[in-house]
Every structure is written in C-alpha cells, then in structure tokens.
Simulated scan of single mutants.
Amino acid sequence: MIDIIKQLEYVHRQLEDGDELKTIVLRRHYDAGIDDVWDACTSAERIPRWFLPVKGDLRVGGRYQLEGNAGGEVLACEPPRFFKVTWIFGDAPGRSEVEVRLSADGDERTLFELQHTAAAPPDMWGQYGPGAVGVGWDLALLGLAIHMSGESLGDPSAWEGSDEARAYSTTCSRLWGEAHEAAGAPADQAKAAAANTATFYAP
C-alpha cells in the first residue's frame, strides 16, 4: 500500500517570485518508463484516472477543458518529453501557463517536472502565497503516483475528508511555506500564508 504522507518527501518544490509573474516548480521521479508517464499525462482516457475528466482537442492549437477546473489552449507538444498549455480558471486575468517536462532516468524511471507561471492577484498572493496553487499541484502529482503504482484511494470524496488527507494538506502547506521563505519572503509572512492555505485545504 502506498504511503501517502511519505509521497511529500519525493517532491522538490521551488518558487521563482517575480514582481508580476510567479512561477512554482515541482519535480519528482516516477518508477515507470517515460513513454508510460507521457501517456498517463496526455491521454484523454487516462487523465481522468488520476486527475480530472478532460474534453477537447489535445493537440497543438487545440483547446481543452478540465471538468470543474481550468481550460485553455495547447501551445506546444514534443512527445514524449514536453508540453505547454495555457491555464485559465474562471475569470482570472493575466498570463497563466503550465509546462510539463519528462526526462528518462533509465528504462523504468522518469523525472517529471511541472512549472506553472501566472500573474497572481496581489490580495490572493498576500493571503495564501504559493501554496494556493502549489498544494493543488502536489495533490495532482500524488494522484499520478497512485495511478502509476496501480493502486487506488477508493472514493476520492471520502478520502478528502479523512485524517490522512488533512495531514497531507497541512504538511504540504507548510512545505510550500518553506519554499516561499526560501524565495525571499519574510518568515512571518510565509508562515501566515501557509497557515491560511492549510485552513483552506483542510478546514
């Protein structure tokens, strides 16, 4: 059985804190070949098994929509190593793009890197910092890890209310607070934002 909390240790989190654009980066390895990981990340049949149902034309120039979440345009695709999409959620203004890069590390191990660059609203950034987006992406990477392992959490809605899910989101929020501080935020500001994020994801 996969250790959910331990999965947090496998992710490297980084923040590039620009004046206008904020970039969060997550990196981790998966014990699967690059072609398998690429297929899991780009196949309309497999994406819902670990992330969200998706509709649209999943090729360069095509548009996609994740059920109840973001949508946008496929800007670039270089199988099996790189794709880039716009990431538009609701009426959020300004640029928002997600890049995913895969690198083979042997035949059955793949380095996964996700980079999300966006113009963050100052009020939201001040309240939550990078964790508002970072925890959501951590949960996506967790979903991919469970999918690649062949296991399942069972009913996602039941898991979301569990003590394990609360511990995961609280710890993940703290780790994004540490990344925030490492990027130059004052310690008290980073800790307060992390606490707000934890309350949001694990009320």
Rank of each mutant, 00 (worst) to 15 (best):
V11S: 05
D39M: 11
L114C: 10
P93L: 11
L153Y: 05
P130W: 10
G143Y: 02
K6G: 05
A198K: 04
A70C: 13
G129H: 05
E97R: 15
F112E: 04
Q14W: 10
G131L: 05
D123G: 10
A118K: 12
R174F: 08
E99G: 12
G33Q: 09
T86G: 13
S152W: 07
W125N: 06
R46L: 01
W159Q: 00
E45I: 05
A187M: 07
V74S: 12
V100Q: 10
A165F: 03
F51P: 01
R28A: 02
A92K: 15
A104S: 15
H180R: 03
A118D: 12
W38D: 00
V25M: 07
T199N: 05
L144Q: 03
L139P: 01
D19F: 12
D107C: 11
K191Y: 05
G56M: 02
F112M: 04
K55G: 05
A120L: 12
T199E: 05
D57S: 13
E16S: 14
G72W: 08
S169Y: 00
G136K: 11
K55I: 10
A195H: 05
S152T: 10
W176C: 02
V135Y: 09
G161F: 09
W176P: 01
F89L: 15
H147V: 09
L21P: 03
